[in-house]
């Protein structure tokens, strides 16, 4: 574990917001590192600072204090444009509500991040998108439009979109929040498969059950890390899925 590269390095991260006259401390000194190949669950109740932490990790927000290194690059001093480029090259987002472009095919949705990278040609873009969609098991749905797919399929497209730029980290924000339990497990299986292939994944959730499926759990409370444990007995989502009663369609 010691020889592994730190993808994310947080040092005493603080984030304060001004709400009217009052100062709100969303993060009060968060320090941890995440190494390549980890599958980390960040948990916390609402108001624990989990969303602020996710925004910081995703380079959407900058901390008020402290240092954040993403893949060795200091993010705190970066301007908006540089952070946009950083997100484009190093981060893959998966959101709770999929956020696919309406009336747009799966392949075009997946191509989107590469559209903002001028070094990728149109042909490369298409090939990578097909590759990513194949990886999430949607090779036969390339030209389906977003409104022609189920929630689980849409989330798979979103995951493919997060994979397409070959990011150093995948940030999933309540990625199973909108799905029924069966489909949730299917998505979890997919994440575990990606993890097994060496992807680094951060899964942010308020659902404590999900912690059983990741290799490491970080619990936030009132803007501080209150628990950071390694899970040696990772539960297989596939086994759980198989044990679920079959539904006939």
């Amino acid at each position: 574990m010691e020889t592994k590269k730190a993808i994310i390095e947080l040092r005493d991260i603080r984030r304060d917001f001004k709400v009217g006259e009052e100062e709100v401390h969303a993060l009060r000194g968060v320090t941890f590192s995440i190494f390549a190949g980890e599958f980390v669950t960040i948990m916390g109740t609402s108001g624990s600072g989990k969303s602020t932490l996710l925004n910081t990790l995703g380079c959407l927000d900058t901390p008020s204090f402290g240092d954040y290194f993403l893949d060795g690059v200091s993010v705190r001093t970066m301007n908006k444009n540089d952070r946009a480029i950083l997100r484009n090259r190093k981060i893959g987002f998966v959101f709770q509500s999929y956020n696919l472009l309406a009336k747009t095919t799966a392949i075009e949705n997946v191509e989107l991040p590469l559209m903002y990278n001028s070094s990728v040609s149109a042909l490369q873009r298409q090939n990578k998108a097909i590759e990513a969609l194949t990886a999430v098991g949607l090779a036969d749905r390339l030209n389906h439009k977003s409104n022609q797919m189920s929630g689980g399929q849409q989330q798979r497209v979103a995951i493919a979109r997060a994979l397409v730029n070959d990011p150093v980290i995948i940030l999933a924000d309540e990625a199973t929040g909108n799905l029924d339990s069966r489909t949730s497990y299917e998505i979890l299986v997919l994440f575990q498969e990606l993890h097994a292939k060496g992807r680094t994944i951060i899964f942010v959730t308020h659902n404590p059950e999900l912690s059983q499926f990741s290799s490491r759990n970080i619990v936030l409370k009132d803007g501080r890390v209150v628990e950071d444990t390694h899970n040696d007995a990772v539960k297989s989502a596939k086994e759980v899925l198989d044990s679920l009663p079959k539904v006939d369609n």
Binding site: G58, L60, K80, N81, A84, I85, R87, N88, R89, F93, F95, N99, L101, A102, L112, P113, Y116, N117, R161, N165
Partner: peptide, 16 residues
């Protein structure tokens, strides 16, 4: 707005 937010999160800059 959400589309814009998504585009930005996957790397669109202001000028894009």
């Amino acid at each position: 707005t959400r589309e814009i937010g998504l585009r930005m999160s996957v790397g669109a800059r202001g000028r894009d």
